[in-house]
Design a protein around this nucleic acid. Structure first.
Lengths: 343, 343
DNA sequence: ATGAAAGCGCTAACAA
DNA sequence: TTGTTAGCGCTTTCAT
């Protein structure tokens, strides 16, 4: 039933060479004569030999495994990222070990330990907060970490985000140009840099126009809390209700639209303009047609992989880099479009 | 910078025992005296020792890595499954290596080879077709495979699905009870067992009532093809247009609803009843409120993990098992509800 | 219950 | 370019 595994030793003897020769043939940058390559390839093919990645990892100290820590896959942005990340890394000969950091914060420590046990070559933390303690452990282990969609000024850890401040600003300018008088904001989880930066940019642009937030509730990036936050903001008399709201991500914005339209019977955008952040697939669905700031997932993933591989190849040379990628405001029909709006 | 890694050897000497003793302390079913356990744990804690999973895998032949092959994460059902699967497996001390089998069929072979290179203890193939050749390679390697949401009568490979035939049947009965006269079906990818079984159950129930499909197009479970398929079916005169349609999964059903309502200006369910399959989160959103057959992801994942671990523990003893899990029809407002409907 | 010894399959100096 | 020699860090008989 269970075929004995073919090792490099057997390939070596069948090809009449040493195991080192076999190893070299299967190692990209190695030197072997064409004749050897040919013999070894032939023998390997006949035997159906494939190098054991784990053994290789042990001997070389490089596992070609990248750990991905992700909090939740409910927000469609993340499955998309995971798919792209996995594909890109596969192209570079790496593979992705996924760890869910579902629950509480203490969990993260455990998850990071587990991931380090696998001797991963690098770690991507998506939408997960890092303690400086964790970052220290990774650095001690010599494992580079790149934060995805989270930025943190911890011990020179690299991070890739969209330009959340600029994004928030764009939304404010758009809403102001639309003549909105009572502008609300539904915040994400306050511990997240995305939340912080989006709000900062948003408020800064309002302030520049001599305006302030009319209302603010917190949705925590969570489905249920977002629903509650939307109700708290809109289930009130017309005078106390915002005529426009910026929601910190699309996942919550879609929920807010549901509350506004189906629970409260208000019209979007006639009664309330809604703008989100991310541009997840569902935002383009005609039932929502949500105006939103696009996060360029492709670019963000490319930068993440680039940063990671650079760090892996040159552990010390490179210092942490923070990349922030600008994303356009995608104008759809969920928010009133200012007269003659172009930019 | 990069701390030298702590090995069992150092723990051993600090605890005044042999490496074997250390190994036993960190091995669940092993025998060590309380005194030894205590000494070793203490030394390990002081040194911050953690066993190297890769080395352990090499020596023991068990990597505690499960390979997950998944075609695409666009259909929300799969991120959900991935999250649950990863969490469940983590509880059992396993971890998930994700491989995307994005493109063509030939790709699958490559992906399976890559995954086997990691000496995974088992493989879950989600929504991916298996050739019997691949299954043979996995069996030769002694690696159990469980198909998720795909069933195939290949060499005793285990599979976990929902009861697609029963599901299709339920939909047909519901639509018939609703008094629909022209019932259409938008098919998924014809190579998929889910597609085949859902359609079979659906048609069987129609036939039992002396009825047949009024129209049929193919959406391939793909976003774009589904849109085309929906247009092909509904962009026609009222007489040639179905008054009800069963769409092979929710992902396509939501797209079909968009086409029906927003492109063609028809009303759901007054002009057309729409029923899907999966019960993804978006189906419960009030903008769609899609009647659908629920796939019980939790149960399916549990059965998958159970099957896999059983196979891993008792490689030969167990023969392939096919689990199919019944799921309820979730009645919402996208399809006309028959008078006094209960079941 | 414990330690010694022999690997798991591979890569990486080092010599030749 | 090639083979030889040591390991990578751990588990696992086998004695004791």
């Amino acid at each position: 039933m269970e075929q004995p595994k073919i090792t490099s030793k057997e390939v070596a003897s069948r090809a009449g060479v040493s195991r080192s020769a076999v190893s070299r043939v299967f190692t990209p940058g190695a030197s072997a004569s064409p004749a050897t390559v040919k013999k070894v390839r032939k023998a390997a093919a006949e035997l159906g030999y494939r190098p054991n990645v784990l053994a290789r990892a042990m001997a070389s100290g490089r596992s070609r495994i990248i750990g991905l820590v992700v909090a939740y896959l409910e927000n469609q942005f993340y499955p998309d990222v995971l798919e792209k990340l996995s594909n890109t890394l596969q192209d570079y000969g790496y593979h992705v070990l996924v760890l869910m950091a579902s629950q509480a914060a203490g969990n993260i420590d455990k998850v990071v330990d587990e991931i380090l046990d696998y001797q991963v070559d690098g770690i991507v933390m998506a939408s997960v907060a890092m303690s400086s303690d964790i970052s220290k452990r990774c650095q001690a282990a010599g494992v580079p970490v790149v934060l995805f969609n989270r930025s943190q000024n911890v011990n020179g850890i690299s991070a890739v985000t969209s330009d959340n401040v600029a994004g928030g600003r764009k939304v404010a300018e758009f809403l102001l140009a639309g003549g909105h008088q009572r502008i609300g904001y539904i915040a994400g989880w306050e511990g997240a840099s995305t939340q912080r930066d989006r709000e900062a940019g948003f408020r800064a642009a309002l302030a520049a126009a001599g305006r302030d937030l009319f209302a603010r509730t917190v949705g925590d990036f969570s489905t249920e809390t977002a629903r509650t936050a939307a109700r708290a903001m809109f289930d009130t008399s017309a005078a106390h209700r915002p005529d426009a709201v910026f929601v910190a991500n699309d996942h919550m914005a879609l929920i807010a639209m549901d509350v506004i339209r189906y629970e409260l019977g208000l019209r979007v955008p006639q009664d309330v303009s809604v703008v989100g952040y991310d541009d997840v697939p569902a935002s383009a669905w005609p039932a929502y047609d949500l105006t939103t700031v696009r996060q360029r997932a492709n670019l963000m993933v490319e930068e993440t992989v680039d940063a990671l591989l650079t760090l892996i190849e040159a552990p010390d040379a490179v210092t942490a880099k923070h990349v922030s990628i600008d994303g356009p405001l995608i104008i759809r029909s969920s928010a009133r479009i200012p007269e003659g709006w172009t930019a």
